[in-house]
Simulated assay, not measured.
Amino acid sequence: MTDATTSPRTTTRTPFWDNARFAAIVLVVFGHAIQRLTYDSDAAQALYLLVYAFHMPLFALVSGYFSSGAEPTRRRMARVVTDLIAPYLIFETLWTITQFLVTGRTNLDPAQPSWTLWFLLALALFRLVLPYLALVRGPVLWALAISVIAGYLPSIDSTFSVSRLLGLLPFFTLGWWLREHDVVARLGLLERRPVWLRAVAGAVLAGAGILAYAFVDTWNEVRLGTWFFFVDAYVDLDAPQWWAGAVRLSIIALALVLMSAFLLLIPRRETRWSVLGRYTMYVYLLHTFVLYPFRQSGVLRGLEPMWLWIPVVIVASVLIAVALSSRPVRRLTRPLVEPRMPWLFRDRELGAGRASAASGTATRQAQPPRGAP
Rank of each mutant, 00 (worst) to 15 (best):
M1Y: 06
T2W: 07
T2Y: 13
P8F: 00
T10A: 08
R13P: 01
T14A: 13
A20Q: 10
F22L: 12
L27G: 03
F30S: 13
G31K: 06
Y39L: 11
A46M: 04
Y48A: 00
L49S: 09
L50F: 15
P57G: 09
L58A: 13
S63H: 00
Y65R: 02
Y65T: 04
Y65E: 03
F66G: 12
S68P: 06
T73N: 11
R74A: 13
A78W: 06
D83G: 09
I85E: 05
L89R: 02
T93F: 15
I97L: 12
Q99G: 12
F100W: 14
L101R: 09
T103P: 00
T103G: 07
R105K: 13
W115A: 07
L117R: 11
L121W: 00
L125N: 03
V129T: 08
L133P: 10
L135R: 15
V136Q: 03
A143Y: 12
I149L: 15
Y152D: 11
S155F: 15
S158I: 11
S158M: 14
S163E: 01
L166Q: 04
L168A: 11
L168P: 10
L169M: 08
F171Q: 05
L174P: 14
L178R: 11
L178H: 04
E180R: 13
E180M: 03
H181S: 11
H181G: 01
G188K: 01
P194K: 06
V195N: 01
L205E: 10
A206R: 04
G209L: 08
G209C: 10
G209A: 12
I210S: 06
F215I: 00
G225S: 07
T226F: 10
T226W: 14
W227M: 06
F228P: 05
F229H: 02
F230M: 11
D232P: 02
A233H: 06
W242A: 15
W243T: 10
A246C: 00
I266T: 15
P267C: 13
R269A: 15
S274G: 03
L276R: 13
Y279P: 03
V283K: 04
V290N: 06
Y292K: 08
Q296D: 13
Q296T: 13
S297L: 06
G298F: 06
L300N: 04
P305W: 01
W309H: 07
V315Y: 02
V315S: 05
S325C: 07
S325G: 15
S326A: 12
V337D: 05
P339Q: 04
M341N: 11
M341G: 03
L350G: 04
A352E: 12
A352Y: 00
G360T: 10
R370E: 12
A372Q: 12
